[in-house]
Design a protein around this nucleic acid. Sequence first.
DNA 1: AGAATCATATATTGACTTGATATATATCAA
DNA 2: TTGATATATATCAAGTCAATATATGATTCT
Lengths: 175, 175
Amino acid sequence: MNSQDVILGLLHRESLSGYEIKQKLEMPLSFFFDASFGTIYPTLSKMEALGYIVRESVMQEGRPNKNMYSLTAEGRAQFERYLQSPVEKDSYRSDFLVRMFFGEYSDEDTLADWIRDEVRKAEAATTQLDRMKSEWAKDMPASKTLCLDIGIELNESKAKTLREALKRLTGSADM
Amino acid sequence: MNSQDVILGLLHRESLSGYEIKQKLEMPLSFFFDASFGTIYPTLSKMEALGYIVRESVMQEGRPNKNMYSLTAEGRAQFERYLQSPVEKDSYRSDFLVRMFFGEYSDEDTLADWIRDEVRKAEAATTQLDRMKSEWAKDMPASKTLCLDIGIELNESKAKTLREALKRLTGSADM
DNA sequence: AGAATCATATATTGACTTGATATATATCAA
DNA sequence: TTGATATATATCAAGTCAATATATGATTCT
């Protein structure tokens, strides 16, 4: 699974420009997939060369012109090939947990600060995902709601585990 | 946080070869950080050129010779600079959740199969982390145990959420 | 009115990373 | 003896990110 596969999925329902694709990649998709402009624009060029998408220049007033991309039959077939390929392993990288792993080289106050920050981040993510769920859940297929549920549960259990660890570390329940 | 920072951390206590570094990057570190040989060997060469580590060739019988690397004072200072840099955001990428996000383009049986596989993976990870914790927890500083706890909690709540979603999808509790 | 900032829009570059592949040597099991 | 596994190092193509560059118009602040 790479950026091309996700872009094919996003273009399945509607035509989009590179800038609009970047916007679609915000929550909730950014919770488990992200791509920068440095990936999106070269990927779109490559996909056009491969015949998966076609470009149409759209003149705009009051803002720069944009290139709208639409899926071709070949692009639809390529998305099907992706769906039939084996499911890849999740990848997770955490600077925070690396620092905890090497915790013996830091002092307790620093560790406590890092944990408190991480709790705040997890709580903020939970709030955002909860709001999204209550706003959009009615119009979503069950599979999409599942993405939000997983995001909510993962962040909640992370925050819970971190608060317990902080209590053990500092000997109190302060934040 | 990149491979160089993690290698500096691993070399803090002992000298290691590139092959041994790859082994150290297995569980539990691989749960939140991983690196391939294609990263490790070029990074070691670069770190030697920068003066962060020194190489010593060690002849071995019955197996190929190896290059042992040790931290220099400059390497220790560089690790301190890493610890004082801002904590980076976690990065998480999930092919499984991308497929759920585009779930409307797959059929229910396929989605159910993918979910069941994901439950199995999460349960296997929980088992492995649990075993590791009971074996090594006594010799570990609390900060290191926290890494295992987070891994266990994350995988357990993921499996729980997925089982509930599967029940809703198929209308039964079968696996 | 002028200055700063933000939003839209596309593109490039250097640096990092992965997965596959290559090359050797040695042990162990079928 | 063939194949698999383990030790050990290295390279390459492809994918990716963060930062940077370039433009234009809209909004906001003073």
